[in-house]
Design a protein around this nucleic acid. Structure first.
Lengths: 333, 333
DNA sequence: CGCAACATTGAAAACGCTTTCAAGTCAAAG
DNA sequence: CTTTGACTTGAAAGCGTTTTCAATGTTGCG
């Protein structure tokens, strides 16, 4: 009942050559006489031989697969990166082992270990809370690790991101320029480096530059979910905010819809600007103004960087910063 | 410079037992004296030994990884399924090799082949156009294949779906009950089985049951994109439609917003009902009424089914149909 | 105490491929 | 003719586990 599998040995016998030769033609090694190559190729075709990647991996110590740790595929921001990653991976003949981590440190460590056990050639990590334990695992990993759209306070790992502090500062400045004095800062957990070490800094910088004093009553730390945003309305208005910078699009859609549903008009009474420029920003009404990020490219560049690392090529810059922009749509004046 | 890797052999030597014994304790084989088990475990811990999954895969002919072919991770419908798949996979100690196919037959076949080369233990396929070539590949695959949220006219493969024709019929009936006579049917390519063999049938059935004659001028075949939906407005109104059933949420958001932007009020002047009940339906205004599908569960059940198949357990029902519902929100009266 | 029955263990053969190294070929050069 | 060096090839040793099979130990019981 087991389907028969033909091995390199069968091909060798059938073609009356050695396994080594078959291996050579399969791998495109030029040191094979054209005539033999042709003969072997014919047999391969006739027998429908397909090299076993596992055996190949064991022998060559390369699996041509990379591990990708993602907080949640269902999140538009990360899935966009993932798409970029996969496309470039495919381009370079790699496959992706994708695992959701829910940004849960324990799960991340565990997943990392099974990836390493599977001998992946490299790893792309997404998630903004690089715990010490995680950092340790990265270090001991013999496979290179690059962070995509994710920051770590101690820039130990290669990574590709945008300049979050500048981007947020610019976004907030924009809000300030529109006359807002009380601008809310809405984001996910402050434990995440991207929030406390980057976004908040950008926020504070913009405030400071404009001579507005920082008020932590205007900082809202919540979940990255639509619902969380939606239920933020009372607090937002209670705090007297007239605008908000939000760290995630789905969350932003929530606060915007929450506001609108409560009768607060966006943008005339309350402006909101979001961070990731996912499709979402175009779907909601009003359309959301946003920091723009080359999402796909962040993933793509990260994967490209990883290929170089896996190939032991020297890379001039380990931490690459891609350009961002600001897209004015209808949630800001 | 190469990081040293400790093998089962090192553990065996260090613990003064044979590789076989080490293998036994690693795999939880009970035939080991407690004392030896303890001794081996200590050495494993001390040496920080981690089994090489590739070698294990070669020897045991099981890789504990399954291939997942997805049209596009970036699509909310499919990424929801993917999440269900990954969670259950993890629960059963499997990993997922995820590849985007863009529903491109050639790419799908190629991807399928590299998955098989990598000796995946099973495959989950998403995509609604099972070409003959693809079907052939499925057949010759020694790894079981299950379709998730995807139909094939000739139900050769195990699959998990909802009853699309009944669901669509019910949705359309709902529209009819609201007094609509000219109901548009908007979907992606009619080459896809799910559209011509399921959704359209449900649509026709509802029409027939209500004594309304079918008019193919009301059938709109387009891309599954927001933009495509948005630009459909002129055609929709030109055709005199007062309601539409749409086969994809992003597409539906497009048609709805296109309508609204053109000054057509939803739902008072035009009703729309969509198909997948992704997060999207809640984000747009008005919120979209939709067929509800247990997205996560479709993926989860598909993966669970696959584990049984991989385990050679007998499954009573190869094609499972999960329950659907109808969620009335604000895009219908 | 002797033996059957069962519990533990180890030796060694796979698993299917890559890779090193030496050997064999062959044509151009001397 | 030899010699030399460039090409081609094959033999065989891994790669790190699992697994089979036989051998060795132990225990219970009459």
């Amino acid at each position: 009942m087991e389907k028969q599998t033909v091995t390199i040995y069968d091909v060798a016998r059938e073609a009356a050559v050695s396994m080594a030769t078959v291996s050579r033609v399969v791998n495109g090694n030029p040191n094979v006489k054209p005539a033999t190559r042709k003969k072997v190729l014919e047999v391969i075709d006739r027998l429908d031989y397909r090299p076993n990647a596992v055996a190949r991996g064991l022998a060559s110590k390369k699996t041509t697969t990379v591990g990708v740790i993602i907080p949640d595929v269902t999140n538009a921001y990360f899935s966009s990166l993932a798409r970029g990653i996969d496309d470039i991976a495919m381009m370079y003949k790699y496959n992706i082992i994708l695992t959701n981590s829910d940004e849960n440190g324990g799960k991340e460590v565990q997943v990392l270990n099974t990836l390493m056990a599977k001998q992946v050639d490299g790893i792309i990590f997404m998630g903004n809370q690089v715990t010490d334990e995680l950092r340790e695992e990265f270090k001991r990993s013999k496979a290179p690790v690059v962070l995509a759209g994710s920051v770590d306070a101690e820039k130990a790992q290669p990574s590709v991101n945008i300049d979050y502090v500048a981007a947020v500062a610019e976004a907030v400045k924009n809000l300030i320029d529109h006359g807002n004095q009380k601008i809310a800062f809405v984001s996910g957990s402050m434990d995440q480096a991207i929030n406390h070490d980057y976004r908040l800094k950008g926020y504070k910088k913009a405030l400071k530059d404009a001579g507005i004093s920082y008020d932590d009553k205007l900082v809202f730390e919540t979940d990255y979910t639509y619902k969380a945003g939606q239920s933020l309305e009372p607090a937002l208005t209670a705090a007297g905010a007239t605008a908000a910078f939000v760290g995630d699009d789905e969350l932003a859609a929530g606060v915007m819809n929450g506001l609108t549903d409560a009768g607060v008009d966006v943008p005339s009474e309350f402006e909101v600007i979001t961070s990731n420029d996912t499709k979402l920003t175009e779907l909601v009404r009003p359309k959301m103004s946003s920091i723009t990020q080359p999402l796909y490219d962040i993933g793509a560049v990260a994967m490209r960087l990883l290929t170089k690392l896996m190939n032991n090529e020297t890379v001039d810059e380990n931490t690459v910063i891609l350009p961002y922009g600001l897209m004015k749509r209808s949630s800001t004046k």
